[in-house]
Amino acid sequence: MSIVSLSQVSKYYSKLIALDKLDLDITAGEILALLGHNGAGKTTTMKLILGLLRASNGSVKVFGQSPQNNHYFSQQLGYLPENVHFYENLTGKEVLRYFARLKQAKKQQVQALLEQVGLEDAANRRVKTYSKGMRQRLGLAQALLGKPRLLLLDEPTVGLDPLATKDLYMTLDSLRKEGVSIILCSHILPGIERHIDRAVILEHGQLVATGSLEALRQQACLPSSIRVQGNWHSNELQEALRKQAVTVTACNDEEIELQILSERKLEILRYLLNRTDIHNIETHDPMLEELYVYFTRRSMCLPS
């Protein structure tokens, strides 16, 4: 059963089209990344799912209900808004306690979450004195209160240090194993590939591509790039590669860079491994960032 299902959803702000006939489905235990340029409609999508906005057209269903009836499921929901702010005059612990009471979460969870996000030392200081990343951590703790079955995280890694980011992704991985569905949007793409099941790329409110990393790679047919280091004295290697119809993008006496479609990658690697004048091979497959650039560029070239 899908936890969230959007079909043909459009959202207009007077004349501006924020979302245009979007279809989206999320099943239990799935992590979906919403990607897109600023103003693409990511936050709007989340607000529609949360019932904070009403769709102009189309249907939104969350846990099989209309999100306007969110009292049916709001206890199973966790939300981290973008640019989160809290009551400046309360301490981090007091803020979290207030939200925990409202969500009818266990009291002990407050302390546990503060430790989980690494705020135990700052828990008794006023939010006024928190750094940006500390506020973001408090926001995350807030989103994890209770036992959410659906998490919506709007740019969760903004302001987090590298370790906290890693911890967050680990937390998301373990939540997914428990069957929690997660929608997150982010502009920081490197590093999230391994943690998401599916990416949805939006552009001006329209879906331009969706699928797992593998599926997106196949759709895009982007070449992998290979860098080879060694010492050769002639252009012999370059010639040999050209003969095998490999694109050489840069070449000198110590280093050569080539691009190759993924179905021929192993064949070329085997050839390279058999040569004795090669010290090192680095391969790089197209990652989310390259795929994102590819899909958004492509849709820019298409007539709309």
């Binding site: 904070l52 808004p81 409202l102 807030q142």
Partner: peptide
């Protein structure tokens, strides 16, 4: 203006 209203409205409270 603080942004907490948005959050509160997603909570189980009318």
């Amino acid at each position: 203006e603080l942004g907490t209203l948005l959050l509160l409205l997603t909570y189980p409270l009318g």
